[in-house]
Structure formats: C-alpha cells, structure tokens
Amino acid sequence: MSMATPRRLGRDRWAALCLAAFAMTAFGLTFTFDSMPASLMEGLGAAEFPRLVCLIILALSVFLFFASPPSEEEVLPEVHSCTWWTLAACLGFFPLLGLIGMLPALFLFPVIVGRLWGERRIMVLLASSTLVTVTIWLLFVRVFRFTLPGGLLGDLLFG
C-alpha cells in the first residue's frame, strides 16, 4: 500500500475535526432543551448526561487527532462510480415510492441497481426481482397484514 504524503491533514484528522465539531454542536444543542423548575429537580437533569457524553467524544476526538499522523495512513482506493450511482438510486427510491407506491418501487429497484452492478441478463433481473417482490407481498402483506404505502398512483387507482 502506498503511503499518504505528510503534508495533507489526513483522513483520521479530518474525521477527528468533524467529530469534535459534531460533539460541540450536540453540546450546544443541550442548552435548547426545556428546563425543569429547580424545586422539581432531583439528581441529574435531562441535559447533564448528554453534555458529559459530548465532552467525552470531544476528548477522544482530540486524542484521535494527535494519535493519527497522516504519514502513517494508507491511501484508500477511490469510491467506485457504482457506489455513487447506487446511493443515488437509494435516494431516488423515496420519490419513486411516493409516486408509484412501495411494492412497484421495490420491484423496480433490484432491476435498476442490478443493471448498475453489471448484470446484463434482463430476464434474470426481472425473474429475481419478481421473486423478491412476490415473497415480500406474500409474507408481509398476506401473512403479517402490513399496509404498504400506495403512492400517488395507488391513491388514484384504488382510492
């Protein structure tokens, strides 16, 4: 594995900075919690424990920052474009679900993502997707009596 150049801040130090910022934000947010009247307070309040945990995260982030010299970090392989497309498909799944309903969206997802992942046999994709969707319908809708979101299309067709 090649080593990173020492000039960079380094992955772990970036992570430490982000975590420290997160801990400080979470610490600050504890001041927005509703306060209890002093007469009703006994022991620790609602905000003290999260504050304590935030301080611990902050302290550990500082340790991580100083314990992670960038020169010792391995360079990671770049995120494959397939990951970004898969993530986009996952996020695109939600508006699609709102439009056509959960079951049809669940049917389309494996076909689209399977294609993205390199499966070229469309009949295999359709067969596998049908199998998964039918199994879900039988198990969750017929046996467990779940009501799956119908989306705009479902509302239009079935009210």
Binding site: L106, F109, P110, V113, G114, R115, W117, E119, S129
Partner: peptide, 13 residues
C-alpha cells in the same frame, strides 16, 4: 448484482 439489491429491498420493508 442480484444479491445486494434484494438486501436493500428487504432493508426497506
């Protein structure tokens, strides 16, 4: 390519 999309579908449900 068949396995992981099915895992996502199961995750959603």
């Amino acid at each position: 390519s068949l396995l992981w999309p099915a895992v996502f579908v199961l995750s959603v449900i």
